[in-house]
Amino acid sequence: MNPLLEAEQAVLGAVLLDPGQLSHLEWLAPDHFYRPVHQALFAALRDLRDDGHPAVKGEGRVPLSWVTDAVAEAGLHVRGLTASYAHLLVSACPRPAHAPVYGRMVLEGAIHRTVTQHAIRLHQEARANALRGKVEGALHYADVLAGVLADLARRWGTEPRPVAPAVRPAVIPYAVPPAQADQVAEDEAFLLAVLVERPGAMGEVVGWLRPGDFADPVHGQLYRCLGALHHRGEPLDRLTLLWEAQRRGLLADGTLTQDRFAVICDGVGVGDAEWLGRQVMRSSLTRIAAVSARAVRALAEDEALAPGQLINHALHALGPLDEVRTRWHTAHGRPGSGTPSSTPAPSVPPTARVQAALTRSTPRAAPSSPDRLSPGPPTASARPPSRNHG
């Protein structure tokens, strides 16, 4: 039993029995049918209607020429169509007046099928871009998929808007292609070494590079530690990074080992942090594009998902790719690091933040005995409350 096939047969049977039903199916296109013979026959019926076939204008019983002419016209574009099959379609239609409902069933199947096809194309292009070190193809097909979703929403009669599914589809985690895995890991480790060794390097990338852009979770955690130190205005070096990693439990739970830390931080730290950051983000963009494509495909293959829900959930699945695309453009729109400027460099933390960090790093004086505490209000030089940087 195949409801989609039966719906396609019912639509065609209804139009063969009642040509006037075509006026209720203007939103249905030939390519919405799955079988090529059904596509050709529906296109032929529409062409005959547009050419003013007598069956469309006539009253009373539909002439047999409506069926024979449609079969002959469709037979010019597809093989295997006979008059007997057309009569089978007629018998497969329960009620010709229900043609719009049958057409909606056909469109629903076409929406699932079309979204699946474009998600597969996006996934293929993302993997190809990862191997070639490019992102343009993945971004282009992401735009194509978004445009297709908007068009399908219009045909279905719903407003396209991103909506998170109640239950996220199970998606196989994306793995970096083996041919690129070593290079990606090397770029990430090299960037971390540069950020540790070169003062001010963190300011070149912190505005657009995120921990999630790192393929290696350990590298992402270390970058998060560097970002926390930078945000608090504290100095960045090998020891402060190790201290921050220890505070976040990376040493206690085995996430970061001594050997792994030494390999990253004892390497050569001379390089262009901005260029390396773009390399990391390029890998991240193609990786997220592939993950988004898999999520959209998983949604489209769920036959129980209504078309409106599928479209909105698919738009939501493309959200992370839109976010990283925005940061990708930001990374390429930054002025060169060597551009002279009379204003302080953006990599320098505000003075107040530096003072707060130094205050937190200063040992506290031993508390006085209770009987010597002053009941008056605290002086202006009292230590300000620490902000939560968790």
Rank of each mutant, 00 (worst) to 15 (best):
G60L: 13
P30A: 09
L17H: 01
G80D: 04
P19Q: 07
E6C: 14
G60P: 10
D51A: 15
R46P: 11
L81F: 04
D18I: 04
T82Q: 13
L89S: 01
L12N: 00
V106G: 06
L76T: 07
A70K: 04
D31I: 00
R104G: 05
L107T: 02
P96V: 14
A92D: 01
P63Q: 12
R61I: 09
P3Y: 13
F33G: 02
R104E: 09
D18Q: 04
E108L: 13
E108H: 09
V106K: 00
H77P: 00
A44Y: 09
S65D: 06
A44E: 13
P100I: 05
L64T: 09
L12I: 00
L64P: 05
V71F: 10
D47S: 12
L16H: 03
A40P: 08
A40L: 08
P63N: 05
H87G: 03
D18A: 04
L4F: 08
D31Q: 05
A14F: 06
P54V: 14
A29E: 08
E59L: 15
L4R: 14
H32G: 04
H77Q: 07
E26N: 12
D51K: 13
P100T: 05
A10E: 02
D47Q: 13
G80T: 01
H112N: 08
A99E: 11
S91M: 03
E108M: 06
T68A: 13
L64I: 10
D47I: 10
L81M: 10
A97P: 04
A10T: 03
Y85M: 14
